[in-house]
Design a protein around this nucleic acid. Structure first.
Lengths: 344, 344
DNA sequence: TTGAAAGCGATACCAT
DNA sequence: ATGGTATCGCTTTCAA
């Protein structure tokens, strides 16, 4: 293990000078700097991140913590964030929270707050207070923070506007009986859930229905747990089993659920889009190549990653700088594909 | 930031005693230990991983480095490994190599060899010698190591046996004109590629064809780069454009390519499985719910993760213990689904 | 069984 | 512009 002392010795300078030179501090003479860099290169030196982190509290590593990595949306999102971090010359390390409180706490208190300069975190089961305590003041940017009263910076998906666009699209395609899959309306009565992803998507749906002058029937909103393919697939079976399928257009509030829904309908002999139009939300890669390809509200992952990383780097550069948390929203796009091309 | 000195003070013992007590060293009296643990709990203490790592070279963090995290196979594989690591009470951090030499080197030399106790690595563009130099002797387990002369421990997917099973299945389904998508036969003539995933899968195909007494036509083996959905989709188009589709059964050496192939065929009006049977390799989650669902050689990810982590932990516990690299192979299973159910 | 003190490899203050 | 040195928080001899 070659250390900075070795480099200093090789370059015939002090450790302090070597340290400054390697980091490009301006007060070191250009000639000295070149000499040190050459020595470091010769010895194939690379700084010890633990030591650096211990002493200075910084090591150029950013943590990304997100729920299941084997699900398309979180894995594609974390991949995009990781690329963006790399583009800024820093290293990204990704961890899965498994949507478990225990894992979230352990990630924040151990790895994140000790090995990383900052964190991009998709919160699930920890409160703002706990996060405050666990991160020891290190910068953190939340993804889709559901807080009613935000404490941390965050980047949101355009849930309300996106959902509104989705339902408006179904209406424009001529759907009359629209179903929404993911959550029931009760969530809107729960003040603490006001900013949850589910509530924001639902309220977008209501807006679109209102604009389209449609009366809303509470049982068109179907809660589902968990938000995954299998749940949606089962739901398709139970809806189909009731006789006539109750909807001619379905908005599933995540793409995974939409694909599960299509698959379930297929198993029941109901064809998308011939019999029912289906639209999703997220824009996972799989949606483009499914059969039928899925119309979806596609979150611009590069934009989201860019915004999250920018905010984090900004926090990193002005410690204790700001008091008011920033909240930005990622761009989205309606990707019209086969699943909503009703044969009329 | 509460440190061990704080805990020691609170418990009225020395720092050394606190350190031993917290780690459960047996020479500390049970009573003292309880006292220290209580103090730590009271102060909500948690050890600084950088400091621990700097001093002892160990911090309970395992690195996992794999290519694109937004592709189903690597993301699902790393999720499984991460879970397995957590099950052993350690933390996993995941990084993407992006299949780029530069990223691989930077991950190994910086994060992995400095912040982690050991690494599970999916090699792409670095040689064994480089890895030896970059990891500074820290344990490493490779995934699908292509080395002809292995230097590190590794866990392999059952490429040869799996591919053989896949082609045998197509034969059993009555296919007469079998195509293999992923690599052409030239790779088998390249000694250095002998143990590559492509070569091993191809040789499995040849075995099955031989057993089935089929003559092999070199142009039934089609190289593709990169191994992804889009490439396979394009290939389907160009094959279909030649007039009669040349195959009645296609083995794509990854599931992603198989799904792309099915989608491409669909776009050309060729139906799977009615017109062509398609089988994949990997067992990604998406294969089960595609329309049609995909028959595949499914690598047992839990088994692979278990084997990789076991080997790594073993290495960790007996430093410089062994000289001969171990090479294990993960279990696999043929999952027969709709895509090979020929309507005959 | 416990404690004192050295040291892991860097950084950053303070001198020079 | 450069160097000496204390220090980050922890582990680990070595003594007591």
């Amino acid at each position: 293990m070659v250390t900075m002392s070795d480099v200093a010795k090789e370059a015939d300078v002090s450790r302090a000078t070597a340290s400054y030179a390697l980091r490009g501090d301006t007060r070191i003479a250009e000639k000295t700097r070149t000499k040190v860099l050459a020595a470091a290169k010769r010895l194939n030196y690379s700084a010890n991140l633990s030591a650096r982190s211990l002493r200075s509290g910084r090591n150029g590593v950013i943590g990304v913590a997100i729920f299941e990595l084997d699900k398309p949306y979180p894995s594609q999102m974390s991949a995009a964030i990781s690329r963006e971090i790399n583009a800024h010359g820093m290293q990204a390390i990704i961890q899965q929270t498994m949507n478990s409180r225990e894992d979230e706490v352990s990630i924040l208190r151990r790895v994140t707050s000790q090995l990383c300069d900052g964190t991009i975190f998709s919160p699930g089961n920890v409160s703002n207070e706990e996060m405050k305590a666990l991160t020891h003041g290190k910068p953190i940017v939340l993804l889709d923070d559901p807080s009613v009263r935000p404490v941390f910076d965050s980047v949101m998906t355009a849930s309300r506007e996106g959902a509104r666009t989705a339902v408006a699209h179904l209406l424009a395609q001529g759907c009359h009986r629209i179903g929404v899959v993911g959550s029931d309306l009760a969530i809107l009565d729960e003040p603490s859930m006001k900013n949850s992803v589910a509530a924001r998507r639902l309220s977008g749906c209501l807006e679109a229905l209102e604009e389209g002058k449609r009366t809303l029937s509470p049982d068109s909103f179907i809660g589902l747990e968990p938000w995954d393919e299998d749940s949606a697939r089962s739901l398709a079976h139970s809806l189909a089993a009731q006789g006539d399928f109750p909807f001619d257009g379905v908005f599933c509030i995540t793409d995974s659920m939409a694909l599960g829904m299509i698959r379930g309908l297929h198993e029941c002999g109901i064809s998308v889009p011939r019999d029912v139009a289906v639209i999703g939300f997220d824009g996972i890669n799989e949606s483009a190549s499914y059969i039928p390809s899925l119309t979806t509200i596609s979150t611009d992952r590069e934009d989201l990653a860019h915004k999250a990383v920018s905010i984090l780097l900004d926090d990193l550069n002005q410690p204790d700088g700001r008091t008011k948390p920033r909240r930005q929203t990622a761009r989205f796009r309606l990707d019209v594909r086969e699943s909503t091309m009703l044969g009329r």
